[in-house]
Simulated scan of single mutants.
Amino acid sequence: MADIEEARKTFQQFDADGDGFITADEYKSAMARMGDFYVTASVAEAIIASKDANGDKLLSFEEFWAGVHKG
């Protein structure tokens, strides 16, 4: 996924409350909606932490984009 508009749409699917950040709970819920029921709360927390540049336990669009953009 190298297109920023596609990335924004994907980000919005994960950001359930629309606050501009993806929490571990939102990540887990989005993955379940997509059929991946193996993402537990601790797995979601680890995934968020691996891309969370500022350590706030939230994934901003910029952090999300940095994680998916391969330019």
Score class of each variant (00 low, 15 high):
residue 32 A to K: 12
residue 23 T to L: 05
residue 31 M to Q: 00
residue 18 G to F: 05
residue 22 I to R: 02
residue 67 G to Y: 05
residue 37 F to W: 12
residue 63 E to W: 00
residue 20 G to A: 08
residue 41 A to P: 07
residue 42 S to F: 14
residue 43 V to K: 00
residue 61 F to E: 02
residue 16 A to W: 04
residue 14 F to M: 11
residue 41 A to G: 06
residue 58 L to D: 06
residue 29 S to I: 11
residue 21 F to D: 07
residue 57 K to D: 08
residue 25 D to E: 12
residue 52 D to P: 03
residue 42 S to W: 08
residue 60 S to K: 01
residue 9 K to M: 12
residue 14 F to Q: 00
residue 51 K to I: 12
residue 3 D to S: 11
residue 4 I to E: 15
residue 40 T to C: 00
residue 14 F to N: 06
residue 10 T to V: 14
residue 22 I to F: 01
residue 71 G to D: 14
residue 9 K to C: 08
residue 37 F to S: 13
residue 4 I to N: 11
residue 29 S to K: 13
residue 63 E to V: 03
residue 37 F to G: 15
residue 5 E to G: 04
residue 35 G to H: 02
residue 31 M to C: 06
residue 52 D to C: 02
residue 63 E to M: 05
residue 56 D to T: 01
residue 66 A to F: 09
residue 14 F to G: 04
residue 16 A to D: 11
residue 25 D to Y: 07
residue 64 F to D: 02
residue 26 E to L: 08
residue 63 E to A: 06
residue 43 V to C: 03
residue 53 A to F: 08
residue 45 E to T: 00
residue 62 E to S: 12
residue 54 N to F: 11
residue 11 F to T: 03
residue 60 S to N: 08
residue 49 A to W: 02
residue 15 D to T: 11
residue 16 A to R: 09
residue 9 K to I: 09
residue 67 G to E: 07
residue 34 M to G: 09
residue 64 F to Y: 09
residue 41 A to Y: 07
residue 2 A to G: 15
residue 9 K to A: 13
residue 38 Y to S: 15
residue 51 K to W: 12
residue 40 T to E: 00
residue 44 A to S: 06
residue 4 I to M: 14
residue 49 A to C: 06
residue 25 D to M: 10
residue 34 M to K: 11
residue 17 D to C: 04
residue 58 L to F: 03
residue 69 H to P: 12
residue 19 D to I: 13
residue 67 G to V: 03
residue 37 F to V: 11
residue 31 M to V: 00
residue 5 E to P: 05
residue 12 Q to S: 15
residue 39 V to I: 11
residue 19 D to G: 09
residue 1 M to A: 15
residue 62 E to W: 08
residue 34 M to T: 08
residue 42 S to H: 07
residue 28 K to C: 01
residue 34 M to W: 08
residue 25 D to Q: 12
residue 1 M to K: 14
residue 28 K to E: 03
residue 67 G to T: 04
residue 31 M to N: 00
residue 53 A to M: 10
residue 21 F to E: 09
residue 11 F to H: 06
residue 21 F to M: 10
residue 7 A to H: 10
residue 50 S to Q: 05
residue 6 E to W: 10
residue 70 K to T: 15
residue 14 F to R: 00
